[in-house]
Structure formats: structure tokens, C-alpha cells
Design a protein around this nucleic acid. Structure first.
Lengths: 328, 328
DNA sequence: CTGAAAGCGCTTACAG
DNA sequence: CTGAAAGCGCTTACAG
């Protein structure tokens, strides 16, 4: 029923090998190449990628494992990865772990079964620590979250530094009681907490942090709870975009305005942060750059498998907006 | 190097056929099944999906072609599709056309080469019209944008009705000069325009519409231009989330506030629409339902290839917020 | 329930 | 440059 390479060969009066060569720009005379191309058009032939991958032992497939594509950070990252992949004539298999180690393990298995060429990977915290012990059959580039040093190539931002910048900015505006809200599933959140804590202590301020699930609802609940205690902080720092959204909603629900009642700042320059009230102060991450750089590292690694592993650290950029200025 | 099914067979003391059966829960005695499972654990065997697909003639792969995963509508849709796919133990190949017919054609070719099981597809407008003529080797379910009637299964919302609802709502608030801004690449935008136009005429109001590229910048530029003409409309309706964002930015940039100077309403209940000013009035689409329904239709179609084609029309829901209330 | 054999649709040495 | 043949790693009738 479906037309195969032999049908094309027959139609063109050549061997299947010649058709294959014409397809993969192997050495074929112009004469035969024309005949093959005509036969392909006539038959509507489309090569079977499964057969090609099996025979050639190249899947030309990039795996991409993230927590949730709906997180704008990963949405943008995935476009950058896909664009780079398709430019290199490769496919992307996208997987969402929802920060669930079981799903993650299942997808890592899938990556093996797909015999992927390489993996771009944001591991959950549980897995991240053990990343030195496992070895994969393909090169891995970690994004957003680095693993044990030296185990894999990685592209991250300077989370400790960025969190410190945020605290410094708030302190410069006269805030002293800065409450920190951090995710509890990624190494990234831990690092941001470390940067927060170090910057607080460095300025003689008391750290006041909480770790919660990295989503809007959990962040909103945690902030509401913290505000209900009576001794209200005068600024809040939040470790990612989804949590920042939750924090903003909690303030709104509590009838609090920023910066009037409380300063608010966090990570990820999402669309809405610029639009609400006087704008929210955020650290902007070079997300598309992270994706492109990760693909670059991957391709270089494929070329030079034995090169020492590299970690590229990009920096976040402080965008100071109304939510943090004019101290209380 | 890599361990294959024969290595497992040898380790377990059985034939490759038995290993294959144990993997695919074919008929295997408990005894041998145990041995095979032990051998798999011992060898770390992972089946090669390319080989399996080639031999079984089932790719267990769903294609998903959308314009841009960064459009929140498609972000949410893709998660719903992926979740349904992985529940059915299938893979998803995600493609972004950027509304570019060439890219689209290339991805349709890719779908053939992957021998996908079925396709969830939001065609560009150029292709949409010719969809009755092409026939694919796999079932297709259109989403967001329907094609020529009866050609394929489809899941859409009632765009004409929803746009009419929006116009009706604005008119009820006392607005008469309602400017409409619509995308120029999708049948969806056309339908929304039709609904807008019909509702305007039905109320004795003069339609005043423009079609532009469906992105934030183009919408912002078009609205700014329209406002510069002097005879300012008192309400603006916009046909999707990205364009609504552009429109909102243009108002802000022009020092205009909503609803004080102008009412604003549009499609897609994106996060930020609830947060800005008094909130933006929008039509919310049941996006995850659209994705799930599309997958349901696809699976039913695979079961019953000859069933007459079905179009499921879901309805959008009006969420009236501050941006449209209290007429000028 | 189990195994030996054929074959899915390609690509790639090998020989010419 | 070209073709005949082997083989990638599986699954699936076929026979027992």
C-alpha cells in the first residue's frame, strides 16, 4: 500500500541504493538523480524515518525534559531548543515531569528507547544530586539547574548573585525586614535562597525564609499565612515567576498594595509583571540564550566527546520597577 | 556495545521471541517471564523504539502542529494533548509553524515520514481552505480552526457567537463606536470578525475593523494608528490574547486608561488580564477541554475510520471585568 | 506456551 | 558512479 524505496527504484529504473544515495546526497550522477527525483514526485514517496534511524543508528532526535511547559521559562526555552534543533534537521521529544521523580524516571527511560542523540535536561532536585552516579548513553546538557560539579555540561544563571542583587536593591530602598519565599523542588531555588541568606547576613539583616511547592497557589497560601502573623515584613522576595504570581494575588486578596504597603520583587520577567500597578521589580533571565547555548554545548560535545565538561554561567539582569521603589 | 533483545534472550536462556512476548505481555509462562525480567534488570536492556515501530508498523506517535507554543492558548493545548497521549502510552511530536505555510508544509511532510498515528492540527489560513483536497495517510483532528465542512473532525469554539457576545456586552454598557482588531492569518480571526460585524450591524452600529498580523506589536501599532486619527472609538475589541496584550500596551503608552478613556475587551483569559487595572473583560476558551476532546475524537476515529466526520463546537465564556463596565 | 525464521524499510560496506 | 547483498533490532505468523 504505502510506497517504499523499492517502488521508487523500480519507477526510476535504478537500484534502491541509488535512490537512497540521491536522497542523502551521496554520489549520484546528475542523470540518475533527475530520474529519481521525478520518480519520487510521481509516487509521492516519503522515506520511513523509523527504518532510516534503525539502519543508520542515528535518531537525529534531541530529548528535552522540563518540569512544565506552561512555566513561561520553559515555554521560551523549548522554542529556542526546537528552533536550533530544526535548523540542524533534528527532532525534539518534549517531556514534562511536573517535578515528579517517577515521571522523570519514565521519561529518562523513554530517552534511552528513542536512542536520542542528546538531552537538554532540567532535573528535579531529587535526581539532581545523584546525577554524578548515573551515566547516560548520550550527552546531557543541564539547564536552569546544575548537577554535581563536572558531571555534565550545564547552562545556568548566577542564582546566588542574582538573589543577592535583589536583596541589595531592596535594602538600598530602605527595606530591612525582607521575607523570602522559595521553591522546594529545585537546586535553583536552593541557590537563590543561599544568595538571599548571604546577602541578608552580609547587611546585618535577619533572614526570614520559607520553602514551599513552586506554584502560584502554594506561594499565595504561604505569603497569606506569613502576613497573618502580625509582624509584617516590609518587602517580599520570591524565587520564580509562578510563585511571584501567587504572591501578587495574595497581596491583592489581602487588600494590600505594592509598594504602598509592601515591596515585592522576584524572578522572571513575565509579561504581566510589567503591566500590574507600577510594575514589578524582577530579575530577567536570558531564557532564549540559555536554550541556544545549551544546544551549542550539546553539538560541541557530540563533536568532542572527551572534552572536559563545561558550565556556562549567564547572568540575570535586574529590572527595577515601581513595586520596590520608594521605601515604606 | 548496546545490549539488544538477543543478549537478554541469551542471559535468560530463552528465545528472542519470548523476550519480546514478555515485554508486550504476550502469552508467556510465569516462570519464563520471571527469568526474562531478571535478565532485563541484569543487562539494563532498553528496547529500541525505531526497530519496534518499523517491525510493528505502529509508531504510537501523535503529531501536533500549532502556530507557536508561546501563545498561551497553544501552550495549554499542548499540555492537554501530551497528557492524554502519555496516558495512552504514545509520544507527541510538536511543531511550530509561526503561521508560515512553508514551515507548515515541511512539518506535514515530517508527519508522513514519522508515520504518525494521528494529527492534532491548527492549520494556517492559507492551507485551511485547501484542506478538502489533500488527503493524509492518518486521521486528522483540527483544533481552533475548522476546515471546509466535513473534511476532517474538528474541535472549535463558536467564534461568531462569542464575538457577538462581546459586542453585545459592550453595547449594553453604552458603547457604540466599537473598533475591532483581528488577526489576518487564521480562519478563527475571520469568524470572530464576522461575529463582530453581524452583531454591530444587528444593533445598527457601524463596523470599524482592521486586520493585522496576530501578534502584540502589530496590534499595538494598528491601535495607536487608529487612535491617532482623532475620532476616537469608545471601545476596542481584539481577537486573541497576544493582540490584546499589544492593544493594552498601546493604550498605556498613549496615557489612556481603561475603562476611563476607552473600554477594552478581547479573547483569551490569560493570567495578566485579571491583574491589570480593574481587570480586562475577556472570552475564556475551554482550552484544556479542546485538547482532551481532540484526542478523544482522534482515538475514536482510529477505532472507526469510516464514521462520518464530526465537528465539536464548545462555547467560550464571557468574563466581564472592569475594563468594559461603566460606560464613558 | 515456546522457538526458528522471515521480514519491516531502509543504509552501507563491498565489489565492480 | 552503481548494484547486489547484508543487516540494523525488533515482532509476528507459523509450526509444534
Amino acid at each position: 500500500m504505502s510506497v517504499g524505496i523499492k517502488d521508487v527504484a523500480k519507477a526510476a529504473g535504478v537500484s534502491a541504493a541509488t535512490v537512497s544515495r540521491a536522497l542523502g546526497n551521496g554520489p549520484v550522477s546528475a542523470d540518475l538523480r533527475d530520474k529519481v527525483e521525478a520518480a519520487i514526485r510521481a509516487t509521492g514517496y516519503r522515506p520511513n524515518l523509523s527504518a532510516r534511524r534503525l539502519r543508520s543508528q542515528h535518531s537525529r532526535t534531541i530529548g528535552l525534559i522540563v518540569s512544565d511547559i506552561r512555566n513561561p521559562f520553559f515555554t521560551t526555552l523549548s522554542r529556542a531548543v526546537e528552533d536550533a534543533a530544526y535548523r540542524a534537521d533534528m527532532r525534539v521529544v518534549l517531556c514534562n515531569t511536573d517535578e515528579n521523580p517517577d515521571r522523570e524516571a519514565m521519561y529518562l527511560r523513554l530517552m534511552q528507547e528513542e536512542r536520542i542523540t542528546g538531552l537538554i535536561y532540567a532535573p528535579t532536585r531529587a535526581t539532581s544530586a545523584r546525577l554524578g552516579e548515573v551515566d547516560f548513553d548520550f550527552p546531557v546538557v543541564l539547564v536552569d539547574r546544575a548537577g554535581p560539579n563536572g558531571a555534565h555540561d550545564a547552562v545556568v544563571i548566577d542564582n546566588v548573585g542574582a538573589a543577592g542583587t535583589l536583596v541589595g536593591h531592596l535594602a538600598d530602598q530602605g527595606h530591612a525586614r525582607i521575607f523570602g519565599l522559595f521553591g522546594n523542588t529545585s537546586s535553583t531555588a536552593i541557590e537563590r535562597h543561599d544568595g538571599y541568606r548571604a546577602a541578608m547576613l552580609g547587611r546585618g539583616l535577619d533572614p526570614d525564609a520559607r520553602f514551599v511547592a513552586p506554584n502560584a497557589d502554594a506561594a499565595a497560601a504561604a505569603l497569606a499565612e506569613r502576613l497573618a502573623t502580625g509582624d509584617r515584613p516590609d518587602a517580599v522576595v520570591v524565587s520564580n515567576g509562578l510563585m511571584l504570581l501567587g504572591a501578587y494575588r495574595a497581596l491583592k486578596a489581602g487588600g494590600l498594595e505594592t509598594p504602598r504597603d509592601l515591596a515585592l520583587a522576584g524572578f522572571d520577567n513575565e509579561t504581566w509583571t510589567e503591566l500590574v500597578g507600577p510594575g514589578l521589580t524582577v530579575i530577567e533571565q536570558p531564557v532564549a540564550d540559555i536554550g541556544r547555548t545549551a544546544m551549542d554545548l550539546l553539538f560541541e560535545r557530540l563533536r568532542s566527546p572527551d572534552m572536559a565538561s563545561r558550565k556556562v554561567v549567564l547572568s540575570g539582569r535586574l529590572i527595577a520597577r515601581g513595586s520596590s521603589t520608594s521605601a515604606a
